[in-house]
């Protein structure tokens, strides 16, 4: 009798457990839906791939556009891949803006598999003069080959020079004008304001860095090619152009020796890449470490606290100056 009852109780308990698990999973699925909300009505719906492009679209589009960022904030974009939920967002969007130049290896797959016929696809970097990834300098061995598997031959981090940021914003403005001719004037005006800000930033960089021409900076991954090119600096990357790889012992030795040789005072790490390697090298070479953001993924906290392209670029300038001082 008692046995029968416990068995019954057990059965009921098991049933409840299974049901609540199913309910939980279903609830998760419903809660996760993301897309353009009601406030997007009447605006140009733009999906931007990564943070710099997202920020540029907001700067040019202002209140006339609703922007969603595809790569979630705080995520290293080199290793990200779109999910089916992300594809759904694209189906209801008017425009997809991506950086291009090999930054988003998945962009081509997306643009080919999306069914939305009215989707306007914009490659923000299409007017930028791209820099080739140099294989000879600072890399006697060609061991950075494998690091470039999804990057192709060009350095994709174009936005790190203010001049290029301006070019990308112009491309975005032209696209927005085409998509929404009614508000063309507003886009033009927003662009002019941002463009002036770019010139100002450029002037600040030029003035501050001109005494240090030819100096070296050691960075976590070689993202600063355009910045260095524009202001006469040289970058030494712990890793190649793509982040997140284990360094080998020989490369570490090379960088430690170079840091000592050039009298480098600071090793830069990125917020989204573990600073362990940078710290080890800094300890060995007797220098400090500091954060330098390649801007490819700000965390949500950064965005909420009002950081954006110009403020981060200015923080970067200060960090670089401190390293030289």
């Amino acid at each position: 009798m008692l046995q029968k009852r416990t068995r019954k109780l057990k059965k009921r308990l098991a049933r409840m457990l299974v049901l609540s698990m199913m309910a939980g999973i279903a609830g998760l699925g419903m809660g996760c839906r993301r897309g353009f909300g009601k406030e997007a009505q009447g605006k140009v719906k733009v999906v931007a791939s990564i943070y710099p492009v997202y920020d540029f679209v907001q700067k040019v589009g202002g209140d006339q556009v609703a922007v969603l960022m595809l790569v979630p904030s705080g995520t290293e974009p080199h290793t990200w891949e779109p999910s089916s939920r992300d594809m759904l967002v694209l189906e209801e969007a008017d425009m997809f803006v991506y950086n291009g130049a090999g930054m988003e290896a998945w962009a081509e797959d997306i643009t080919q598999s999306v069914q939305n016929k009215d989707l306007m696809i914009v490659e923000a970097s299409c007017e930028v003069e791209l820099l080739k990834i140099d294989h000879d300098e600072d890399h006697e061995e060609d061991h950075d080959e494998e690091g470039h598997h999804h990057h192709g031959e060009f350095d994709p981090h174009v936005w790190l020079s203010p001049e290029n940021a301006k070019i990308e914003m112009r491309t975005i403005m032209e696209a927005l004008k085409k998509a929404d001719p009614e508000h063309a004037e507003i886009y033009e005006k927003n662009f002019q304001a941002a463009s002036q800000e770019c010139d100002k930033l450029d002037a600040e960089y030029r003035a501050a860095l001109s005494p240090y021409e030819g100096k070296h900076i050691v960075v976590a991954h070689e993202a600063y090619g355009y910045l260095c090119h524009a202001y006469g600096l040289e970058q030494i990357g712990i890793e190649g152009v793509s982040a997140d790889q284990e360094p080998d012992a020989a490369r570490m030795r090379e960088i430690i020796d170079m840091a000592k040789e050039y009298g480098i005072k600071c090793i830069f790490f990125e917020e989204l890449v573990d600073p362990k390697v940078a710290k080890t090298i800094a300890d060995e070479a007797g220098c400090q470490t500091a954060a330098l953001s390649p801007l490819d993924g700000l965390t949500q906290e950064d965005i909420d606290s009002g950081r954006e392209y110009f403020s981060v670029m200015r923080d970067n300038l200060n960090s670089i100056l401190k390293a030289f001082a």
Partner: peptide, 17 residues
């Protein structure tokens, strides 16, 4: 939120201890 924290545990590296 931040992938750096997470990755540092996933990829320990013997040359950066």
């Amino acid at each position: 939120k931040s992938s750096a924290d997470f990755n540092s545990f996933l990829f320990g590296s013997i040359v950066a201890i």
